[in-house]
Write a protein that binds this DNA or RNA. Structure first.
Length: 231
DNA sequence: TCATTAAAAGTTT
DNA sequence: AAACTTTTAATGA
């Protein structure tokens, strides 16, 4: 197996404070793996045997409700830890992680978690910060669901996506992974039809430009204004 | 306002 | 060709 390069981890927050030899040790314990688009990395309820770091690609975290509906909880972008059940004191995964596009992932046995947090400076604080941010984000989502109207919710979801994984292109900012109307409706608790109609409407007035599984925000400012207006 | 149902057309594999 | 994605319209809560 090709050796992993230390520069892969050096700039990623939980490892930023570590020296070369420490990163080398961590990499030697890691198992690198590729996942094709649409593949599950782990599933909700399964024993949390490993924790993961996304090196390349995009991951969708999906929670299944009692009714059997799948709700997209959040997206993970390159450089983020995920599947860190151990960090919140669980021994099973609280959600399913799916590869949105082709992904490159490192993983470690959960048994290493205590080793990492105890021996590597900054790993624990950075990881808990990430967990805190995620929980805050999910909580915001819940509040939005209860208080905002559909158009505002969808607008915010799109804005969140471009801020997390937007890429500047001629004429706007595009979401740099495949996203469908259905996905957006799963994120916002509405239907694909409503999302489709909203997007058509926004496209007509020049806020966005979208083709199949692809969205470009052409006027982020006006979309922000739209997302903040209250009914 | 928004969901549901249905039907049609476009895209990908 | 089959499977998937998007659009549009009609109807009702």
């Amino acid at each position: 197996m090709r050796k992993l390069d230390e520069s892969l981890l050096g700039h990623i927050p939980p490892f930023r404070k570590l020296g070369r030899p420490e990163i080398r040790a961590i990499l030697d314990l890691a198992e690198p793996k590729r996942y094709a688009a649409g593949t599950a990395i782990f599933e909700e309820g399964l024993a949390a045997e490993r924790f993961y770091l996304l090196l390349d690609g995009h991951i969708r975290v999906i929670r299944t409700t009692e009714g059997g509906d799948q709700v997209i909880a959040l997206h993970i972008v390159a450089g983020q830890l995920f599947g860190i059940a151990a960090a919140i004191g669980r021994d099973t995964y609280p959600a399913t992680a799916m590869a949105v596009d082709d992904c490159l992932v490192l993983s470690w046995p959960t048994s290493q978690w205590s080793n990492f947090t105890a021996n590597y400076d900054g790993f624990a604080t950075e990881s808990y910060k990430v967990v805190g941010e995620r929980m805050g984000e999910m909580n915001n989502r819940l509040v939005e669901m209860a208080t905002q109207q559909v158009e505002q919710r969808v607008a915010r979801a799109v804005l969140r996506l471009i801020s997390q994984s937007g890429r500047k292109v001629a004429g706007g900012i595009e979401i740099d992974f495949p996203i469908t109307r259905q996905n957006l409706s799963d994120m916002t608790g509405t239907t694909l039809h409503t999302v489709s109609r909203l997007m058509s409407g926004w496209e007509k007035v020049g806020l966005v430009k979208s083709t199949r599984r692809h969205i470009v925000v052409t006027d982020a400012h006006r979309l922000v204004v739209l997302s903040e207006k209250s009914g």
